[in-house]
Design a protein around this nucleic acid. Structure first.
Lengths: 238, 238
DNA sequence: TCAAAAGTGTTCCTGTTACACCCATGT
DNA sequence: ACATGGGTGTAACAGGAACACTTTTGA
């Protein structure tokens, strides 16, 4: 059985007290979304452990790739969750029993874990969500319409949501949340969705263009709505 | 022997792959300073490990107290240093041999450590620097006149120095770097020292006072220099 | 032809910059 | 008396906020 094999062997290849959790953030239909995994009735953040042979950052990149297939991801450190009661014996026990497997008290997942959390901005259209061996499903959720969340992962999600808001105020780049080419109205909508406030259209455009980080491309040729055809833009490659 | 006892017993009471390093920052004679410990000819950051029974934050608070005696410290998370080659076998071996002690290859300090770093702003006058059992000395150094530094601690120091600069631009509070009561010129000097740039006197005062975070107290009665007696200020208690 | 979408412009206002001016104090 | 340190004021300017105007397009 694959799960048991993992539980038995894990302690040999991973650092025993560190885990990584990822808040993978996408954008669709004018809503910010995050990618969650299902175990039993609850949902949790994609995560994993750090191999003895890899750096912490490399572990985060590997774990993100395992769940999305992404090769050159955007990834930003979020914070450390290191409470002393951060172990999830009961949750694992229940999960194992629900799957009719044998539970052992000394399974490695019972350790106390300090979790390093990252957030990643991804283009939903470009990734291939792939559940892990323990997960029943993987799915996108609106940030303001979350399901029941495992353990303390809800507070991590909240922290990531707020951090993204703060970060956007300092650096204008939203990386992969939009396709390579996007229009100013699209970018405007995105910023409003992240910041959860209205931004003046005129000022927004001037501010963005004054950064000099964006190149204007020819106007988009066709659309299904009245009004002028918007220009397209892309992030300057440097 | 105390050191050996520590090395033999450490693996039982601490998380085996996590360490904490602190950048303790003070201010004196118009210079930013940091507190370093001496081992052999080199200097390193105060640090320690995380007990099984305490949270990561509590560990940082405890370690800071052990080296300074501080009870309610300012403490801010800095970053994670998690390279896979982050272990210091040779350094420890040399240190143990220099002290005429027996070296064992499986000593716990040989583990690969992921380090969580914090920085703390302290009032130099209020702390009591205390070396640990392995340290020959503890001392303050100017940030721009550092001695030879152990391992990768120099890059941690640099990161802290830059982070403090960034943080000051967003929040004006410098906590313990000055005494409880301070004058506007003193605060002005401090901000200039942190940011490493000249700030207009007039504008600085207006900006600081407009935050509403500071209370004006009566003028300082005596000083040794010509000119008006400056007002004193303190941070509002809320 | 009209309403909606997109781009641009105008006015007002706040806050920043750079500097000038004034007051108090020690030598 | 005067140089120095400290507090406050002012004119010029840049950038933000709010909103108006114009152009383009689908229905």
């Amino acid at each position: 059985m694959e799960i048991i094999k993992f539980l038995e062997k894990a302690n040999k290849q991973f650092l025993p007290n560190l885990s990584i959790d990822l808040v993978i953030i996408g954008y669709q239909n004018n809503k910010l979304k995050c990618l969650l995994l299902q175990i039993d009735e609850k949902w949790l953040l994609p995560g994993g452990y750090i191999k003895n042979s890899e750096s912490v950052d490399d572990a985060a990149i590997r774990i993100l790739k395992e769940r999305t297939g992404l090769d050159n991801p955007h990834l930003k450190f979020l914070s450390v969750f290191g409470n002393r009661d951060r172990q999830f014996k009961n949750e694992w026990k229940e999960f194992i029993k629900n799957n009719n497997l044998d539970w052992k008290d000394d399974y490695w997942v019972n350790n106390r874990f300090v979790t390093l959390t990252y957030y990643s901005l991804v283009n939903i259209a470009e990734i291939h969500p792939t559940p892990g061996i323990m997960d029943e499903a993987i799915s996108w959720f609106d940030f303001d319409d979350l399901p029941e969340i495992w353990m303390d992962h809800r507070s991590i999600l909240t922290k990531a949501r707020n951090r993204l808001k703060e970060d956007l105020k300092h650096e204008q780049l939203t990386y992969n949340l939009l396709p390579d080419k996007f229009t100013m109205p699209e970018l405007h909508q995105l910023h409003q969705a992240i910041l959860e406030e209205k931004l003046d259209r005129s000022r927004f455009q001037k501010k963005i263009l004054s950064t000099g980080l964006f190149d204007r491309l020819p106007k988009k040729s066709k659309k299904n709505s009245p009004g002028q055809n918007p220009y397209q833009y892309k992030i300057k490659s440097d």
